[in-house]
């Protein structure tokens, strides 16, 4: 589904990603772990098409086509979704109206008619129940004055509504208490199918107790230096990142 080949990216002239290779297939859950500043969030932004980052080398292939030159909305139309670490507050637009606009723009790009209001309401009801979101919450301005937990739940609610092929969850557990993590991860788990894939970006192992990854990759200084199964995350939890750094140095 997603193939990243030798990806290099800069921000303000400084190289952050230094040759990333990653392949994600339908039905898989991947986790990218790494210390602060290793380039995790940059990778998420570059896949989503954030124009603040300049891709200097390499390709991002999504479902057999190169998406490196596409704008963020075009990537969304293809089925890529990014759950933000810090969702942006947009006063004056309600959650419901935003989601409706978003879904209908995606449908328009796919040459589909706007979703009938009745279906939309039904879907909103279903998905908000899945994420235990209060109806009142849906008429509030997007993210404005939301708690950290509400913002993250709202991100996953949008994901549930948009039904992406590839969902990138950037530090979705940060700022969440244990109950909120449970609600959010239950939501993510229920949305999993054989056709879609999830890429989790996380600093801590904690979230991976709830959303079990098939693959774990360690990102250090802009490169994936180690990949493994879910047990790798456990090992990182116990031993930190330093032993990997040492392994790296030893192998040089």
């Amino acid at each position: 589904m997603l193939k990243i080949k030798n990806l290099h990216a800069n921000v303000e002239g400084q190289e952050i990603l230094k040759g990333i290779d990653l392949e994600i297939n339908p039905g898989e859950v991947h986790a990218i772990m790494g210390p602060n500043g290793s380039g995790k969030s940059t990778l998420a932004s570059v896949i989503a098409g954030n124009e603040d980052f300049e891709v200097t080398e390499g390709d991002i292939i999504f479902e057999e086509s190169n998406i490196s030159e596409l704008s963020p909305d075009e990537r969304a139309h293809k089925g890529i979704f990014l759950s933000f670490q810090y969702p942006v507050e947009i006063p004056g637009v309600s959650v419901t109206n935003f989601v409706r606009t978003s879904i209908n723009e995606v449908r328009k790009a796919r040459n589909l008619e706007p979703m009938p209001a009745k279906d939309m309401l039904k879907m909103i009801k279903e998905k908000s129940e899945l994420l235990k979101i209060d109806r009142k919450f849906l008429s509030r301005s997007l993210n404005e004055g939301f708690s950290g937990g509400e913002k993250k739940r709202n991100e996953i609610f949008q994901m549930a509504m948009l039904e992406p092929k590839l969902a990138i969850l950037d530090e979705t557990d940060s700022g969440l208490d244990i109950d909120a993590i449970r609600v959010v991860s239950d939501g993510v788990n229920q949305l999993k199918t054989k056709e879609n894939a999830t890429l989790m970006i996380t600093h801590y192992q904690r979230l991976l107790d709830y959303i079990i990854p098939d693959y774990v990759h360690v990102l250090l200084d802009g490169k994936i230096v180690k990949s493994g199964g879910k047990e790798l995350a456990k090992e990182l939890e116990v031993r930190g990142y330093d032993w990997i750094k040492e392994e790296q140095i030893a192998s040089l």
């Binding site: 989503a48 704008s71 963020p72 969304a76 139309h77 947009i90 004056g92 606009t101 790009a109 301005s141």
Partner: peptide, 22 residues
Amino acid sequence: YYLQTRGIPYKEARALLMFAFA
């Protein structure tokens, strides 16, 4: 950018933000 990642094209996103602002 946030609106664009949700599939709303640049022009429409601008209009939506202006509308929200007012």
